[in-house]
Design a protein around this nucleic acid. Sequence first.
DNA 1: GCAGGGATGAACT
DNA 2: GTTCATCCCTGCA
Length: 192
Amino acid sequence: MVMDLAGIDFSAPSPEVARRLIGVTLLVDGVGGRIVETEAYDASEPASHCYAGLTERNFSMFGQPGRSYVYRSHGLHWCLNFVCREPDHGAGVLIRALEPLDDAAGLALMRERRGLDDVRLLCSGPGRLAQALGVTRAHNNLPLDAPPLVLLPRRREVEVLAGMRIGISKAVELPWRFVEAGSRFLSKPHRG
DNA sequence: GCAGGGATGAACT
DNA sequence: GTTCATCCCTGCA
């Protein structure tokens, strides 16, 4: 079965899905913004959580495409992924940064959750983004087309650049990080 | 039992 | 620009 959310086929390989997610709006309980940075992971490469096969932590990555995978990183941060490709294969896209929506109520809530005002630091990193949107373990393995999650198609074309992934020690050479060209809201500048 | 992690923020040069 | 402590849970020996 093919998940078609915000014009994206989540049964496609994860780099393809990661590229097409740039510019898409993500909301969690009405709070969020435009996705400006993603990274693809796949069971065929050792940086992925699903490389070693099905475990208790990563079970949602082996489920249906078009759902969420949330895990705890370094014991204190939560990170949000979108599951893609066929069941039993294991692949996903890490959502690394958002451009906060220009909405007063949502911005106030994100600032309160993050404990700071600077809009550029609200969602510029996977842990920061999860904190600003209130994502926790309770958001693991949820469908992306039902509350509290909402995906909205991009309203204009965006220029997407591919580069090397960040914060990993294996398979670092794969150009599976995707960013919106020129965005001020990236977790790190683009590196080709 | 233990090493290490898809990170962050503060404290540095 | 760079290192460093910190969180605690997962996975494998």
